[in-house]
């Protein structure tokens, strides 16, 4: 059974980069969101297993989504994928429940080894 995936990033290219890094057989179960609010709407339904989340977005940003997930008590694995790789930011999002902090641009091998690490692949 393939997991359901949500990719949230305001950049179309970044979303495609994540998608391309995922196993082919997952692709039919992938949804995308362009900003935090859209992501939270989808997450609220509780059908997402894995969320790939950008941090810098207009409106509700990545940190806002993480806080929303805690508030709504949504059960999903969050991997933050960000260009802002300052140590402060990393510890902040890990503190908010993200599984991993991955730097952009995302590479397929890095993404997959991190999925393996958490038993998701």
């Amino acid at each position: 059974m393939n997991p359901t995936v949500l990719i949230c990033d305001d950049s179309n290219m970044a979303r495609k980069q994540v998608l391309r890094s995922l196993p082919e057989q997952w692709h039919s179960n992938v949804q995308t969101a362009q900003h935090g609010a859209e992501a939270l709407t989808i997450l609220r339904n509780g059908e997402i297993d894995i969320l790939f989340l950008d941090l810098t977005m207009p409106g509700i940003d990545g940190v806002g989504v993480l806080q929303g997930i805690q508030k709504l008590n949504v059960d999903c694995h969050v991997f933050v994928i960000s260009a802002d790789i300052q140590p402060e930011m990393q510890s902040k999002v890990l503190g908010l429940g993200a599984k991993e902090f991955l730097r952009k641009p995302i590479k397929a091998d890095v993404l997959q080894s991190n999925l393996e690490k958490h038993g998701l692949l």
Binding site: T56, D84, I85, Q86
Partner: peptide
């Protein structure tokens, strides 16, 4: 085009992010 613009913005974001980190 919209795609080209998005791509450029993303490249710049990543570049500045990494540069900031190195600089810090």
């Amino acid at each position: 085009s919209e795609d080209e613009q998005d791509c450029l913005q993303e490249l710049i974001n990543v570049a500045m992010g990494q540069a900031s980190d190195q600089l810090a």
